[in-house]
Each structure stands twice: as structure tokens, then as C-alpha cells.
Design a protein around this nucleic acid. Structure first.
Lengths: 206, 206
DNA sequence: ATCCGCAAGTGGTCTGACCACGCTGTATAT
DNA sequence: ATATACAGCGTGGTCAGACCACTTGCGGAT
């Protein structure tokens, strides 16, 4: 009933139509979508209804609007969503601990997935890259791990949680290069137990 | 720059003020928030700007508005958000597999957390509850596991992903009661390896 | 070639009007 | 005393129109 009521709202219909339009036109992040006035005309709805729809998906981080320029598609990396959700959800200190724990679980899951992927050559290749670095960026390291895992959803969850972690302005400790290399070596050895142990050492959980 | 521009938008400021208002008034899910016209007056902004803000957080699933009745706070279970995000993010069949895999990872993580909690008595208590059931609801079972884990973020991620899974209308297989009981027994035994093995049998991954 | 002004198109905010719905209180009928 | 109907009020929903601020592109002047 309630969800039916919501789905009957014009702004929801507009969001759906915008979505279809993006699909049909094959728009990619960075591309411009039709202007408010054009959407209003095309969809035969009021401009303020169009604006309501656009505001909604802008807050989701799906588009961005720039005065005088237009409305652009963006990666579905909801930094605004993260910020706003944080104020509703993250309301106590315990949640910060949960956040940290959860990020670590996602990271360990990611490593387990990599083990299943059997792509030693890619890991080895990345190891060479890491070896010549002076410092290893923790974010870049795990971004690469997410890529190697090839599970888009884990990647997305990790990005959202990580951005969130950043937004509550908690400084994440960087670890030493040998610790990152140890994780990569364990991945290539293929032993899950070893991988998790090295990860825990990286995160100083042991 | 872009995020600065966004944060300067009136509707974003309105969202923030609504958030603060909810906090200060101690509003809970189900409670009514001030009407559009009242918010417009109180915040000294146009009603359409208020509506833009409300539309945005309604789409996030944080509030719901009912014509003739008002605007109500709801659990931050973004079913609409899930639906809409799905059309932007879940665009291929591989993602469905990722979704399933990720839910399973979250569930295993949850079980690992429970192992750390050392609450055998609660597990035992729940086991008694399960034993007298004819059928075990998979959702209820894992909802209970999430509760026992006491990690609100894992719980939230699981709920969102699970709702999402449901929304793409994939039927999740229910398992037999002995399988659920086996997981609970392994939890009480305290052996992580055993727990994960039983879980995998439950999910028919072995 | 460069600079500047202007026009056009964009988004941002607002006011006001009107409609549809739901709730509540009151009047009326039984 | 009770049930029903209706009016009023407050709510959300949609829209038109006005006006402002910003960006970009183009044409003309230097």
C-alpha cells in the first residue's frame, strides 16, 4: 500500500524514466543528461516535479548538477549518500568499532575471493609494482585487491564503507611495505589460513 | 569544489536541519515530522525547497510521506533506495552471482563475530526455540544471527543486500532444520572451521 | 590573435494556486 | 445513545511562472 503509494508518485516515475533514458542513450559517467526544462517538456510534467526527482538521485550520488552547466551522470559512488546516511545510522561510538570491524571483514572476504580466482600471474605482476614503491597507499592496495577479486558488490560495499570511514575523519594507519608484500606472497601460496594471518598482522590484529 | 557546491545547496542544508531536528526532538521510526508548510516557515525557505529535500530523503528510505496525513520517520531500511540503486548498479547477470556470494560472505562474517562474542547461553536458548519449529525461516534465522553478532553495520548491510536479493525476485532456498541446528551446535562448540563448514553445508556449497 | 560584451541556456529558489486525501468534530437521523 | 454523513481543516502532490546566478559560446572591436 505504502510502497504502491510511493511508486505512484510522479517524481518516482520521473526517476524511472530518466533511468531508461540513460540506458537507451547509453550514457556514461561524465555525460550530460537533458536539462530540467527539456525533461519537463519531454515527459510532460512540471519542472518542479523534475527537480524533485533530480534532487533525489543527486543525493544518492548518481548525478551531479552544476548551475549554468547542466546535469551530469556520475559513478554510483554515493559520497553524499554516505555522508547523510552516516548521520542517521552512525550514532554512537560502538558503531565506529563496528565500521572498522566490518571493513576488515570485507577485506578478508575479498582476499578469500582472490584465492578462488587463481590469478597468480596478476598478483605477481602487482607484487612487482608494490616492490618498487617507497610507500604503499593502503587504499590503493585494497582497491587493487578489490579489482583482483572481481566481485563488484564487495568492491562497492568496501568503497562506501571506506569513504564513510574517511568521512568520520578517522585516520587509518598505513602499514609497512613488507606487510603488504607478505599478504601478496600468501595469496600466491594459495593458503587461506596464511592469507588471513598475514592480513591480521597487517592490520595489527595479532 | 563540486562537493562544496553541492553542500551549498539549500535542499542539502534543509536535510541537515531536518536531521538535527529529529535528533533534538528524539523522534523515532513511526513518529511524524513537521509538515512541509511548517518546515518552510520554521526554516525560512520556500516550500518547494523543503519538498526537494524531503523527496531526496524519502528516496533514501529514511522517511515516508502520505498525502493527507503527513511525513513520518522510518527505519533506515532503504527499500526504495535498494530498488533504485539496483537499476543503476545491477546491470548484468554476473552481479547477481556477486550479490549471492556477498550475502554468503556477510553471513559467514556474522558467524565469526558470534564466535568472538562468547554468548553460548544465548545460542543455546535460541537453539531450543529452533528445535520446536516445524520449519525454519532462513531470514529469521540469520536475522537472529545478526542480532547475536551485535554488529549493527553488518546487520544493516545484510538487510539491504537481502532485501535487494528479494527484490530481484530470486527465491532463496530454505534448508532443513537439522542444517540450522548444526550451525548452532558448531557455534557452541566454538570452532570456526567447523562453523564455516556447517554453514557451507547449509548453503549447499560443499 | 585577443579581449570583452552580450545572448542564450543552464540550474537554484521561491511564491502562489489548486487539487486530492485523510482525519476530526459536529450535526442530524434513527 | 448510537450511527452516519458532511464540512472544515490540515496534510501532501503537482504545477506555472517569475526571477536570479552561473557558464558558455559567439561575434565584434581592437
Amino acid at each position: 500500500m505504502n510502497s504502491e503509494a510511493v511508486s505512484k508518485k510522479i517524481y518516482i516515475e520521473i526517476v524511472k524514466k530518466i533511468r531508461m533514458m540513460i540506458d537507451e542513450d547509453g550514457l556514461k559517467p561524465g555525460d550530460k543528461i537533458p536539462s530540467e526544462r527539456e525533461l519537463s517538456e519531454r515527459l510532460q510534467v512540471g519542472r518542479s516535479s523534475v527537480r524533485e526527482a533530480l534532487r533525489a538521485i543527486e543525493l544518492l550520488g548518481l548525478i551531479e548538477t552544476r548551475r549554468g552547466e547542466g546535469t551530469f551522470l556520475r559513478d554510483a559512488r554515493g559520497n553524499q549518500m554516505v555522508q547523510l546516511l552516516s548521520t542517521f545510522i552512525l550514532q554512537d561510538q560502538k558503531a565506529v568499532k563496528d565500521l572498522k570491524d566490518t571493513i576488515q571483514f570485507i577485506e578478508m572476504d575479498c582476499l578469500r575471493v582472490i584465492l578462488q580466482r587463481n590469478n597468480d600471474h596478476k598478483i605477481a605482476h602487482y607484487r612487482q609494482t608494490v616492490e618498487v614503491l617507497d610507500d604503499v597507499s593502503d587504499d590503493e592496495f585494497f582497491l587493487k585487491m578489490m579489482e583482483l577479486a572481481n566481485n563488484h558488490l564487495l568492491y562497492r560495499i568496501w568503497v562506501v564503507l571506506n569513504d564513510f570511514y574517511r568521512s568520520v575523519d578517522l585516520k587509518k594507519e598505513a602499514s609497512s611495505k613488507p606487510a603488504y608484500l607478505a599478504v601478496l606472497d600468501a595469496l600466491m601460496a594459495g593458503e587461506e589460513k596464511e592469507v588471513i594471518e598475514k592480513y591480521k598482522r597487517l592490520r595489527k590484529l595479532l
